[in-house]
């Protein structure tokens, strides 16, 4: 469903993605971890071309994402993206946030879009907040709305870029719960996160990155209990000791 072939990317002189080869199957849940600056966010931002690559190919659903001629609108409509900082639209209510893309991209009628939005709000447990503005919500609630906003487009893939890193500890659980539910619905997901409990519980595969390279990949149990490389071992010991 998602395929990286010999992908390279530079930010100036910094080699952020170094010969990435990766295949993600339909329905797979992939967790990407690694030290900061290792290129993990860049990796998933390339999937819907929030970042351009300089070399190689990225194919998503048979669409060549790396090709400059590709119509991004169609591609992006099928991929939900959840940001670390939520990025809800502050001038719109929760409901308007969720309805915006269905109405304007998919051209769904307004009352139909509202029905979908309410349904998605139910899914993230926030039906009572439909008329609120983002600034009136807690971080955890905002992130759940952001997930509902992504889901409203009925995407085939959901990408999460450190979805809980900006949250207070007591709010992390509510966001992870929503994500676990998504997994059980069979959503294809790529999640950049340091939540190792989440990774162990639901990931099909963990991918460890450092300095722009994929260092190690494996089943979560294997990766956490029996890392193959010293760098991975070092990383795991450091995030688990806290």
């Amino acid at each position: 469903m998602i395929e990286f072939k010999n992908v390279d990317k530079w930010f100036g002189k910094l080699h952020v993605l170094n010969n990435i080869n990766l295949k993600i199957a339909k329905g797979e849940v992939l967790v990407i971890c690694g030290p900061s600056g290792s290129g993990k966010s860049t990796l998933i931002r390339c999937i819907n071309r929030l970042e351009n690559i300089q070399k190689g190919e990225i194919i998503v659903n048979d669409i060549p994402v790396h090709d400059k001629a590709t119509n991004l609108t169609k591609l992006r409509a099928d991929i939900g993206f959840v940001f670390q900082q939520f990025h809800l639209y502050p001038h719109m209510t929760v409901l308007q946030n969720i309805m915006l893309a269905p109405i304007n991209v998919k051209k769904i009628a307004k009352n139909e879009a509202e029905k979908i939005a309410i349904e998605k709000l139910e899914q993230v447990g926030l039906t009572d907040k439909s008329g609120a503005y983002p600034a009136q919500l807690s971080g955890g609630q905002q992130q759940r709305v952001a997930i509902a906003r992504g889901l409203a487009m009925s995407p085939e893939i959901m990408l999460f870029d450190e979805p809980t890193s900006a949250l207070d500890p007591e709010m992390i659980g509510e966001v992870l719960d929503v994500m676990v539910n998504l997994v059980s619905e069979g959503m294809t997901m790529c999640v950049v996160t340091h939540e190792m409990g989440f990774a162990r519980k639901v990931a099909d595969r963990v991918l460890f990155m450092d300095e722009g390279k994929i260092i190690e990949t494996g089943k979560p149990a294997d990766f956490f209990d029996n890392p193959q490389t010293e760098r991975a071992e070092d990383f795991i010991s450091r995030i688990l000791t806290h």
Binding site: R76, F81, F83, H87, L88, L100
Partner: peptide, 21 residues
């Protein structure tokens, strides 16, 4: 920039991003 990114990753065209968000 996050507002642009959120709007564009939901599939809105550049003009829609500007006009709506």
């Amino acid at each position: 920039r996050g507002q642009w990114e959120a709007a564009s990753s939901s599939g809105l065209t550049l003009f829609q991003q500007l006009r709506l968000v």
